[in-house]
């Protein structure tokens, strides 16, 4: 027998989970929605995604290799995922160079300056997106309308998103019931046949991915459901008070980035809280902020801002909102 037995402390076995597998799990969950975008927006969706993923992975590689002078972390899949999520938040006709700039901000600024995976306080894809929205407002808000599979890119036909139509209309004093006739019915919105960011449109396929994430135990229900329920309650209250001045909750959930944000962006491990209680509070916060921005803010959409604002509170929440420990209550009471 070998005399070199290993001695290490227990436990002596390890589960099958790895960081890479978790990241891949989220990527797989996003695939149905990706295919739906390709179906609705055509080549544009493929180009945006390819450029975004490739540049995120490349920037991470270059920084790790030449700035940190370390071996690669690319294979953990996190840069790929950031690229994918960034693409999902972009219009499918945005100029390629802008995507590369956004990817740079996501990876180099939002992730690597803080020390890489696990250390960034803000969701990298959202930092990239918000930076792009502020720097390139025109390109970032020209939304191609879904026209079946099409091969055009920058010449795609564009139009306003449902959220923008409602926002503009309400500002101009038009009654919501009339505005609603200008936007697709909920069933069409549910499938994703509407204008918007390439990955946010299809509620159905995003929810399919959510079920997969729950089944695989990659995320828990706490953050997504608390966001969605809060938005329903908040916008629902105003809608009940005055349905001609405020859009209904179903519209708020199906239009824009609520599902993409709640299921895939707000649940980012690194930038979300560490225990269920804190997760629920975080989710409610995002729900309230999103509703407030949508109803009273300058932008028609508020999910990204809401998540980033709540990201800032996560360290505080982790410090002060604690899970109840086993045997604790009895000791103190």
């Amino acid at each position: 027998m070998s005399n070199l037995l290993k001695v290490s402390l227990s436990p002596h076995i390890h589960g099958k989970e790895t960081t890479r597998k978790l990241m891949h799990g989220v990527i797989i969950a996003l695939m149905p929605a990706f295919l739906a975008s390709v179906f609705f927006f055509g080549y544009g969706a493929i180009i945006v995604t390819t450029v975004s993923v490739a540049s995120c992975v490349l920037f991470e590689y270059l920084i790790v290799r030449f700035v940190f002078k370390k071996t690669l972390t690319i294979n953990d899949g996190s840069a790929f995922l950031t690229g994918l999520l960034l693409a999902f938040n972009l219009p499918s006709n945005i100029p390629v160079l802008i995507i590369v700039i956004g990817s740079f901000v996501s990876i180099a600024v939002a992730k690597m300056t803080f020390g890489g995976l696990g250390n960034n306080p803000f969701n990298p894809a959202l930092v990239g997106r918000v930076f792009m929205l502020i720097s390139f407002p025109v390109q970032m808000t020209s939304w191609p309308v879904p026209a079946g599979f099409q091969t055009g890119y920058s010449d795609a036909v564009t139009g306003a998103t449902p959220l923008a139509i409602i926002k503009e209309g309400i500002k101009n004093g038009e009654p919501v019931s009339q505005l609603m006739s200008q936007i697709p019915p909920p069933s069409q919105m549910f499938l994703g046949d509407i204008g918007g960011s390439m990955g946010e449109v299809s509620a159905f396929f995003l929810i399919l991915g959510f079920i997969w994430l729950l089944y695989k135990k990659i995320i828990t229900w706490h953050i997504p459901l608390s966001i969605i329920l809060t938005i329903i309650v908040f916008t629902g209250t105003f809608w009940l008070i005055n349905p001609e001045k405020y859009a209904d909750p179903l519209f708020h959930i199906l239009a824009g980035g609520v599902l993409l944000g709640a299921i895939y962006m707000a649940t980012d491990y690194v930038t979300s809280p560490m225990n269920p209680k804190a997760m629920l509070i975080y989710g409610c916060g995002i729900g309230v902020l999103t509703s407030v921005i949508r109803i009273w803010g300058a932008y028609p959409e508020g999910v990204s801002f809401a998540i980033l604002i709540m990201n800032a509170f996560v360290p505080l929440m982790n410090r002060y909102i604690k899970p109840k420990r086993f045997g604790e209550e009895i000791k103190n009471g």
Partner: peptide, 23 residues
């Protein structure tokens, strides 16, 4: 053999499996 340790991704899995609800 143990696998090489990589950065904590703050997935909170350790919190959720602790039978005592420690962190």
């Amino acid at each position: 053999s143990r696998s090489e340790m990589t950065p904590c991704i703050r997935c909170a899995k350790c919190v959720s499996v602790c039978p005592l609800n420690l962190e």
